[in-house]
Nucleic acid binder design. Structure first.
Length: 444
DNA sequence: TCTGGGGTCCTAGGACCC
DNA sequence: TCTGGGGTCCTAGGACCC
């Protein structure tokens, strides 16, 4: 938390819908809903006129259709138009300070401490930012924005939401708690439907209620990170810096089908498209990735992910596709899929990788490669039993296996023989009486 | 009423290493 | 004679955000 209100948060009002109303005068003053217009679409943005009827972001479009009156416009998003207006606004923010963190197409933080503003008194800030809001409206052909300014990202963001649309809220240093206290806990970042309901069950409705809970209790309920974070946020303690750029950590693409798809030929065709899109973007970033993940959603909305990591990072389409296909074959698609997705993560810069990795097969672990330790040490310098990697083993429960690795009083065994199916990998104490050297084993 | 698409971060258990 | 434990990686799932 800073000693001056030098963090600005800006949010464009009902952005997608406002652009549509700007570009199509007949829509002005009328309810407009932008989002997926198919049977399984959801609302991205509802104009303020549509919100009067209950239409909201993330609501199924079908539901918004029932709520809104005849004459309501339901439109598919026009991404290019939104990006063009967004760029104009972001440029105006850069005129305030070089440190601009764009959160999304319609939202950004600005670190005013890095810009030309030197007077952080409320009146001076008010004048300067009202001028900014006027410029935004003028340069974008009529769009409006809401701004919050405070001593942290948290306060700036909450401020920008307090007087929408076309509002400006400045919270002077030292006044954070009186602003925060009466607000519902849901205004805090990281408090969604689940956490909000959980807190309500403990009698916590407002931030002031949350302030009365002990860190100990919050940590025991929500875990170390989330619990501590809630306590910090309740008291407006937030030191997160404004960062201008961030490396992507994952790239993904997914598609919800108009009707569930069970045909494996069709699913494979869709998977190829998704993998091609993701790989193209990976290559644009100049990155390789190690972990491939598929996502499937069934008709009942149950959702599963399956992932696999390659030995080396790769950007090679054929390699990535072969992993993706293996993952899809392992998924249950018999009853049909509502959604199929594919993503990569574990990314590293392209240039640091040898090109030879691109063509390399995914290596299977072998006893020789996986194991370096030989004699079992019990951790206190004694060797009660020697286990050699690759040695055959008999086991009371699993039958036959071989030593995969060993060390520190433990031996890891893979239960698999030349004629038996691969079984589990399990780790035992080296002196476990269930384990005995066998060699050569009588495979069955 | 029936739930998009693109992300981030966290947790938890098992394997594995030391 | 008996006894662990910290740290990291991988995988799966979930909450949350825009």
């Amino acid at each position: 938390m800073r000693s001056r209100p030098s963090v600005l948060h800006l949010d464009l009002d009902a952005f997608f819908a406002a652009v549509e109303q700007r570009d199509k005068p007949s829509l002005r003053g009328k309810p407009v809903v932008v989002g997926g217009t198919g049977g399984r679409g959801v609302v991205a943005t509802a104009s303020y006129e549509a919100r009067k009827f209950g239409a909201r972001s993330a609501m199924p479009t079908a539901q918004a259709r029932r709520l809104c009156p005849p004459g309501t416009a339901f439109l598919s998003p026009r991404g290019a138009a939104y990006r063009a207006s967004s760029a104009i606004v972001m440029q105006l923010l850069h005129d305030l300070s070089p440190t601009v963190e764009q959160v999304s197409v319609d939202e950004a933080y600005v670190d005013l401490a890095h810009g030309d503003i030197t007077d952080f008194a409320v009146d001076a800030l008010h004048n300067r930012i009202q001028r900014l809001l006027g410029e935004i409206t003028e340069r974008t052909g009529g769009l409006t924005a809401s701004v919050g300014i405070g001593t942290s990202k948290q306060i700036a963001k909450i401020g920008s939401d307090l007087d929408k649309p076309n509002g400006l809220v400045i919270v002077p240093a030292g006044h954070e708690n009186e602003v925060l206290g009466p607000l519902p806990v849901r205004v805090l970042g990281g408090v969604g439907p689940v956490t909000g309901e959980r807190l309500r069950s403990f009698g916590v409705e407002t931030v002031a209620d949350l302030q009365r809970m002990s860190v100990t209790d919050l940590v025991s309920i929500f875990g170390e990170s989330h619990g501590r974070g809630l306590h910090e946020m309740a008291f407006a303690r937030d030191d997160r810096p404004i960062v201008t750029e961030r490396e992507a950590k994952s790239i993904s693409a997914e598609e919800t089908f108009p009707v569930d798809v069970a045909d494996s030929t069709v699913l494979d065709r869709e998977l190829v498209k998704l993998v091609e899109r993701v790989t193209a973007r990976l290559q644009e970033h100049g990155h390789f990735a190690r972990t491939m993940t598929i996502k499937v959603r069934h008709g009942d909305f149950s959702t599963f992910t399956r992932s696999e990591s390659t030995l080396h990072p790769t950007g090679d389409l054929a390699t990535i596709l072969s992993v993706a296909r293996r993952l899809l074959v392992g998924a249950d698609t018999a009853a049909g899929l509502r959604l199929l997705g594919f993503g990569v993560s574990g990314m590293s810069p392209h240039a640091q990788e040898r090109m030879s990795f691109e063509q390399e097969e995914v290596e299977q672990p072998s006893p020789e490669a996986a194991v370096t330790a030989h004699d079992v040490d019990d951790g206190w310098g004694r060797n009660p039993q020697t286990w050699t990697p690759g040695a055959d083993v008999r086991h009371a429960e699993h039958g036959a296996g071989w030593v995969w690795g060993s060390g520190l009083g433990r031996v890891t065994v893979r239960f698999e023989g030349p004629t038996t199916a691969p079984g589990p990998v399990r780790t035992f104490k080296a002196d476990d009486p269930q384990l005995e050297h066998a060699g050569p084993p009588e495979w069955n």
